[in-house]
């Protein structure tokens, strides 16, 4: 009986389909409009230096003074992530100048954002780095 319960619990947990979390946009923000995040790779993704630009606004008004960390993960386990702090170069535009793809293939760019009022926000972008 315990085993049957365990199997049933597993099936409920899995819900027969994978959790769709690859393109995430999550976080906790206080009341009001949710900020809009747009991630771009300057010049498109390529092996080596590829600065990442993060556009951050709420209702088309630039959000200034946020803390933005850009992280690149490969789809394969075990490779070191690339983590760079982005600096605000213009109001609402944050740039991780030293961000660098270390390998060709599929990557996930994730931005962890802390807004000036303390709310947090995460956005991801799947990217293929050509050979």
């Amino acid at each position: 009986m315990r085993w049957i319960l365990a199997i049933l619990t597993s099936l409920l947990l899995t819900n027969c389909k994978p959790p769709g979390e690859r393109e995430v946009s999550s976080g906790s923000t206080s009341a009001g409009l949710k900020p809009t995040v747009r991630i771009e790779i300057d010049g498109g993704p390529s092996l080596g230096l590829s600065p990442v630009i993060v556009y951050l606004n709420r209702d088309e008004v630039a959000i200034r003074g946020a803390t933005v960390e850009v992280r690149g993960d490969m789809t394969h386990a075990g490779m070191s992530p690339v983590i760079e702090r982005a600096t605000e170069v213009e109001p609402g535009i944050y740039r991780a100048e030293e961000f660098s793809f270390t390998m060709a293939g599929d990557w996930f760019i994730t931005t962890d954002i802390e807004l000036p009022e303390g709310d947090t926000l995460t956005e991801s972008l799947p990217v293929t780095v050509p050979r």
């Binding site: 690859r22 490969m74 789809t75 394969h76 390998m103 060709a104 293939g105 599929d106 990557w107 996930f108 799947p126 293929t128 050979r131």
Partner: peptide, 14 residues
């Protein structure tokens, strides 16, 4: 050879 990630044979893995 430099290692590259799988899944990109005929397109990305996601």
């Amino acid at each position: 050879q430099p290692m590259e990630m799988r899944g990109t044979i005929l397109g990305p893995s996601f």
